[in-house]
Nucleic acid binder design. Structure first.
Lengths: 158, 158
DNA sequence: CACCCTCTGACCATCTTTGACTTTTGACTA
DNA sequence: TAGTCAAAAGTCAAAGATGGTCAGAGGGTG
């Protein structure tokens, strides 16, 4: 693996997968020690890899007996997935390629669309295709991702 | 071989051929060092020799743990259909919903995409989703349809 | 000679790593 | 109970590590 962040990401996902409950609780310092990095590296990994749109929820507590809890969000209804993603899209001030990718990957994981469809749409929403100023790009992405959600809603019986 | 670009091209193709998967991942700096050239030379080689038309797909990531990934893909046999559609897209001064639909229908007829995919994209490119001034809408549609063509060049056997 | 590739380097964009400083929390003490 | 302290975790900006772009110089070929 190329960088320590990826390694830590994989490790955490592995632990998460192996845990019965869909949540794990870690001690930041422990993880940092295990991978020989500074503690704040763990925050970086969490902030970039375990985001809401990817379907993770993170809680933590400081002080003695502190912890970081990572939870995989489990939504039972397709509707929930769509509406939570719509909320995220609405709330995010800037929609960059990374976020678009996260959302599309999530939709595929949740079996709301096929890999190939996601692939196509990703390219339509790429920086390359949307060769505009950042704000305009963000605007278009928001419009189109919301349009996508709308289609998926009735396509999956909403 | 007369120039360094050709040498690098051959080298990369050789490595690609020898790799089990039809993809390789390189570090720009490494290759540049091996051939004693500036890093941007690698970009030049990639931009001129590993294009989509020639059947290659290139992805990359910057920053720590960055890389350049080159993938061999199989081109779709109906390049002529794509070319003619691209011409149409280029030549039309205004791209309205009707034209988008025509293009998508054609692509489905030629079995270059599935009905459902066309449906999705049609919605993304609709007047409703692209709630903009006519010219801007037209601009976005052009960009995105061209992006679509680019993907379709190699899909189905990539 | 003109033109089209190549090559180069300065400058840019993006992602990661690090560390100093901050905030929160619980336990212990006065 | 209030205050203090140490043990977490959080924040943020700078530094580091890559890759990308672009315009101009350089060179070979018809």
């Amino acid at each position: 693996m190329r960088n320590i962040s990826d390694v830590i990401e994989q490790y955490l996902k592995q632990v998460l997968k192996e845990s019965q409950a869909n949540a794990i609780e870690i001690k930041r310092q422990d993880i940092a020690q295990r991978f020989e990095c500074v503690p704040s590296q763990i925050n970086y990994v969490i902030n970039t890899r375990f985001t809401v749109e990817k379907g993770y929820l993170v809680e933590s507590k400081r002080g003695g007996g502190g912890y970081i809890r990572i939870r995989r969000v489990i939504l039972h209804e397709k509707q929930d997935v769509l509406s939570s993603l719509m909320d995220i899209i609405h709330e995010h001030p800037r929609l960059n390629e990374q976020l678009v990718e996260n959302v599309l990957v999530r939709l595929v994981e949740e079996q709301m669309m096929h890999e190939q469809e996601a692939q196509l749409i990703y390219h339509l929403l790429s920086d390359e295709a949307l060769n505009l100023r950042v704000d305009d790009r963000s605007f278009i992405r928001r419009q189109q991702l919301l349009a996508l959600m709308k289609v998926l809603r009735y396509r999956n019986g909403g």
